[in-house]
Design a protein around this nucleic acid. Sequence first.
DNA 1: TTCGATTAAATCGTGTGCGATATATCTACC
DNA 2: GGTAGATATATCGCACACGATTTAATCGAA
Lengths: 134, 134
Amino acid sequence: MLCFALYSAAHAMQAAYKPLLDPLGLTYPQYLALAALWARDAQTVGQIGATLHLDSNTLTPLLKRLEQAGWITRQRDSADERQVRLHLTAAGRQLQEKAAEVPLCFLDLAGLDREQAAALRDELAALRDRMRRR
Amino acid sequence: MLCFALYSAAHAMQAAYKPLLDPLGLTYPQYLALAALWARDAQTVGQIGATLHLDSNTLTPLLKRLEQAGWITRQRDSADERQVRLHLTAAGRQLQEKAAEVPLCFLDLAGLDREQAAALRDELAALRDRMRRR
DNA sequence: TTCGATTAAATCGTGTGCGATATATCTACC
DNA sequence: GGTAGATATATCGCACACGATTTAATCGAA
């Protein structure tokens, strides 16, 4: 069953990330949200959601925990008060350096070199996009 | 990021399964647990857990819901009262027939033929096992 | 044989995911 | 400029996952 291989591989991946993220005090989804902000700061909840394919029902509490931990700030956009804009704090930016080695450790842990990982990543992304389209 | 491709593909897979499983009144993890029993009836909680890599903290409530829905029964093993043995009901066995087309629909939905799906499944299973080993 | 260690489930608490709904703001049309 | 519909976020409820602890049953060694 392909579906179970996908399901169990995703769980194993999160378990493998855990020892890398625990010292930073992050869960894997929290790490993804921060990674989106490291790539581009000052995004809205909706923009992060579009990237991660998560809605505000999941993101709002997650982002509140990131705010509570001091990595980000959340404030209504003054131009459009419906939106909440997210900004990294100084601590949040510093965290990126500590987290820099996480993806490298993961590759090692997955037993893949960069090319193999990139190929599998592309195959999975294509599969995901096909599944989303139907 | 390979990790995100895996994460998002697994979510897309569960979303793709949803319209197939909703008519049966099953969630995807419930479907997995039933599939394990369809393959071999009268397993213990621990055996199902070994197959799905889930512990009793996840399985006990899930299995109680399957019992509540009338698909399975749960009873302590008389030979070893620590174990709880799971049996399909008549309805639970009949459900297998209705669910028979689910994996086929999924392949179609994923846009893969059997060989491609098998190849990707094996690659993911190998990756999963490497990640578990470290 | 008996009592400590091991094992199997269950329970509890926290953090996602996600469907459904609510609330507040903005936009467009009259 | 006032109001209906659209948009962005938040809230609520339920079902996983999983770490930590608890409870009950079994095993094993002195």
